[in-house]
Simulated scan of single mutants.
Amino acid sequence: MATWRELVQYVREEYEVISSSDDEIRILFNFEEFDEDDERTQVVIVAREVLDAKHEWVQIASPVGTADKVDLRALLTEIGQSSIACGAAIMGDHVVLRHSLPLKDLDIHEFTDPLELLAGTADQIEEMFFGGDNY
């Protein structure tokens, strides 16, 4: 997989798409596919980013809650101790977990493994710090 179009086609075939635009596709990651007893879901945003007007990257991000309703130090400490596949950022009003990968010569496992890890971590962080399943 080497193009944004190929990645979008793969995502459309493998995941439940809830919205899309030219440079972004949003999916509803369903944990029930991996565990029949888990009815939780997580919104995951897959976006095309261009670095220095020439290098294409794919960013995987998932909102976990609003920044004004959380102890950011505790949240960042937890992410630092429990995650290897994502970092945290504030985008707009929301805390998001995100991971970025170069699109050129991207192997599908270099995309799916971090996506699954990020979705699972985001779901756990959301439940732990925000007490729900809103995203």
Score class of each variant (00 low, 15 high):
W4T: 06
T121E: 00
A122D: 01
M1K: 11
G120S: 08
C86V: 13
L28E: 06
A122T: 02
V58N: 02
G132P: 04
V58R: 02
T77W: 13
D35C: 09
Y10I: 05
W4S: 05
I125Q: 03
Q59W: 06
L7S: 01
E56W: 13
S21F: 13
I45R: 04
G65M: 10
A74R: 14
T3N: 07
A53N: 13
V17K: 04
G132I: 07
A88Q: 07
Q124K: 12
E127C: 07
A61E: 02
P63L: 10
T77L: 11
D105I: 10
V95M: 06
L72S: 11
N30R: 11
S19H: 11
T41Q: 08
V70Q: 14
G65H: 06
G92N: 13
D133P: 01
V46D: 00
V17F: 02
V46H: 02
K69G: 12
E49D: 04
E36K: 15
A88T: 12
I79R: 02
G65P: 02
V17P: 01
A53H: 10
Q42K: 07
L106C: 09
S62R: 07
R73L: 15
T66A: 10
S19R: 14
Q124R: 13
F129C: 05
D37Q: 13
E126L: 08
G92P: 14
W4K: 05
F34E: 09
I45T: 10
V95Q: 02
H109A: 04
K69Q: 15
L76T: 09
Q42G: 00
Q124N: 08
V44S: 06
D123H: 05
E127G: 03
R40E: 00
A47C: 05
V95F: 02
L115R: 01
M1G: 09
E127L: 14
Q42L: 08
E14C: 07
A74E: 10
F130S: 03
V11S: 02
G132F: 09
C86P: 08
R26T: 09
Q81D: 07
F31C: 07
S19F: 15
G132W: 08
H55P: 08
H94V: 09
E24V: 11
A2D: 14
M1N: 06
N134K: 13
R26G: 04
A88I: 12
